[in-house]
Computed example of a mutant assay.
Amino acid sequence: MTLLFIGLILWTGAHLFKRIAPQKRAAMGDKGKGLVAVGILAGLVLMVIGYRGAEVIDIWYPPIWTVHLNNLLMLIAVFIFGMSATTGRLRGRMRHPQLTAVRIWAGAHLLVNGDLASIILFGGLLIWALLEVVLINRSEPWDRPAPGHAKKDPVLIAITLVMFGIMTAIHAWLGVWPFPGY
């Protein structure tokens, strides 16, 4: 659990550094981008190692139907995450599509994982994403991008389905089958 906590702290600190100490971050110049990237990557690696190595301490036992709700929410999260890169009509519909997707992802995983390590990991990332949105909204005005062409929206749907399939395959490869009963 220690590595999980350290990873969460590194991830959160590296991401929030620009928001909490903008002058210090700006003074670091381009070198600061590399240091932040290293902090984020180190945090990610430590979270994965810490989570996979954590003792399973069950806090609650989710009902089986929450797995289906999780899968639906994950499909929505992948779609919303993709909205950040779309050039279609959906561009600019949401200010923080990536952070919104992280919040949906974390909430969905909290629905299906009742162990302490999962609550710490997904709950911690949910809190980080919420805090990040608040800090961004306070510090930066939003210049909403103009919508693109509707013909690009089917591309987003196709990419969403492919990415969801890849994520499902990775979960299966790791030994977590996301479709119980099938």
Rank of each mutant, 00 (worst) to 15 (best):
A54L: 02
A54V: 02
A54T: 06
V56R: 14
D58N: 15
I59C: 10
I59Y: 10
Y61N: 15
P62F: 04
P62K: 04
P63Q: 01
P63V: 04
P63D: 00
W65D: 03
W65M: 09
H68Y: 15
L69A: 08
N71T: 12
L72S: 04
L73M: 06
L73I: 04
M74V: 09
L75S: 11
I76G: 11
I76Y: 12
A77D: 07
A77Y: 09
F79E: 05
I80P: 04
F81T: 13
F81H: 13
F81D: 11
F81A: 15
G82I: 11
G82W: 09
T86I: 12
T86V: 11
T86D: 10
T87P: 11
G88C: 03
G88Q: 04
R89N: 13
R89Q: 14
R91V: 03
G92F: 10
M94P: 12
R95T: 02
H96S: 07
Q98L: 15
L99S: 11
L99H: 10
T100A: 02
T100D: 05
T100Y: 02
I104H: 04
I104P: 01
W105Y: 01
W105L: 03
A106P: 09
G107F: 05
G107Y: 00
A108H: 00
A108R: 06
L110N: 10
L111E: 07
N113F: 00
D115S: 03
L116I: 05
S118Y: 03
S118P: 05
I119L: 12
I119A: 08
L121D: 08
F122V: 04
F122T: 06
G124N: 06
L125V: 06
L126G: 09
I127E: 03
W128V: 14
A129P: 13
L131W: 08
V133S: 08
V133I: 09
V133F: 09
V133G: 05
V134S: 15
I136T: 13
N137T: 11
N137K: 14
N137F: 11
S139D: 01
S139Y: 04
S139R: 06
E140D: 11
